[in-house]
């Protein structure tokens, strides 16, 4: 039991770290108030449920309605994966590629209204777009099965049940680490610095001849592609997709909580923020009924967790607005040299 807790924590840490890293680039670095973060994760689910499942149905020549058809298609592919692990890995890579492309496109379109909007209007618009797509996906059963749900391929069909959680957590952590390396490289280039400059003062960046809109589009395209990867991993882990799972609270609010708790603009700080949140979340998930009966709470613990996390967010905003590990000044090689000179 206790071992499972650790694998759960690792898995959720990886998933949320991927989402939070992308949000940190958008919000922490570029200053875009992306209150529609959940959309990118949903895009990942669409890539798996809406595209990959349909491709599988075509491949296995399964007709009939989408929801039952995808059940047959996934069980067919699962039998193949069970004997050919390489197919499972192939499916994962295919899904990630599909999701990244879709994420790039959706992210680039998603941010277009910002051409004319300032922070608050932009944040509201992004939230509203994300929420509207969420509603459509929930109530229209033909996209990703809606509230009814559809099954997705089990890419680890060849691994026995007791180890599946661990192996999956390992895959997610490896991908999260790659994403971390990607962002560290990306944000330590002139691109990363210009994003921070844009957050502080758009006009200065304009004066240096950079196109603000192009910067925003790039940021959101990359951010959404990465967010979509998290959506893919989550959908493949749970082996099914229920559209209601991609809520604003879980995939927008909580990532904001983690980024702000850790320290926006600082990827290592964000890791700490994610870890804190995930440990609390997993423990609450697993022990919720123990807590309920021990404290004699007359309602579902999920409501209590909402109150707790809401209060935690307010406390962060009051007392630690720059997070546990605040953003550090950027030190480019010439600046490091200069500092060394001064020290001598």
């Amino acid at each position: 039991m206790s071992f499972d807790i650790i694998s759960m924590i690792l898995l959720w840490f990886g998933l949320y770290y991927i989402v939070s890293l992308s949000l940190n680039m958008e919000f922490g670095y570029a200053g875009i108030p992306n209150f529609g973060k959940a959309l990118s994760v949903l895009v990942g689910a669409i890539a798996v449920g809406g595209i990959l499942d349909r491709l599988l149905m075509l491949y296995f020549k399964i007709n009939g309605d989408f929801i039952t058809g995808s059940t047959y298609a996934t069980s067919a592919i699962n039998t193949i994966i069970a004997s050919h692990p390489i197919v499972g890995i192939g499916i994962l890579i295919l899904a990630i590629i599909l999701a990244s492309i879709l994420g790039l496109i959706v992210g680039a379109i998603f941010i277009l209204p910002s051409a004319k909007l300032k922070e608050d209007y932009l944040g509201i618009t992004l939230l509203a777009i994300s929420e509207a797509v969420f509603l459509i996906c929930t109530y229209n059963l033909n996209i990703i099965g809606g509230y009814y749900g559809i099954s997705t391929p089990d890419i680890l069909a060849f691994v026995s049940g007791e180890y599946r959680g661990w192996v999956f957590a390992g895959i997610v952590l490896i991908i999260a680490f790659l994403v971390f390396l990607f962002f560290e490289r990306l944000l330590n280039t002139p691109f990363g610095r210009v994003l921070r400059a844009m957050r502080e003062n758009e006009n200065t960046v304009r004066a240096f001849g950079r196109n603000i809109m192009m910067l925003r589009i790039k940021t959101m395209a990359i951010g959404s592609a990465i967010g979509a990867i998290a959506g893919v991993l989550y959908s493949l882990y749970t082996v099914n997709i229920i559209a209601n799972a991609f809520t604003r609270v879980d995939w927008t609010f909580f990532p904001f909580l983690m980024v702000l708790l850790g320290g926006k603009g600082n990827n290592k700080g964000v890791a700490l923020g994610v870890l804190c949140y995930v440990v609390i979340k997993v423990l609450l998930d697993i022990y919720k009924y123990n807590i309920k009966y021990a404290l004699n709470i007359p309602f579902e613990p999920v409501w209590l967790s909402y109150m707790l996390f809401g209060v935690l967010m307010l406390l962060i905003l009051y007392y630690k607005p720059s997070g546990l590990i605040p953003e550090k000044p950027i030190l480019t090689p010439p600046m490091k040299k200069k500092i060394a000179e001064i020290k001598q």
């Binding site: 919000f27 108030p33 608050d120 609010f253 904001f256 809401g310 209060v311 967010m313 307010l314 905003l317």
Partner: peptide, 14 residues
């Protein structure tokens, strides 16, 4: 204003 919006989201969650 972003921080204030996040605060109202937190209040909404509470």
């Amino acid at each position: 204003v972003e921080m204030l919006m996040i605060a109202t989201l937190a209040i909404d969650l509470i």
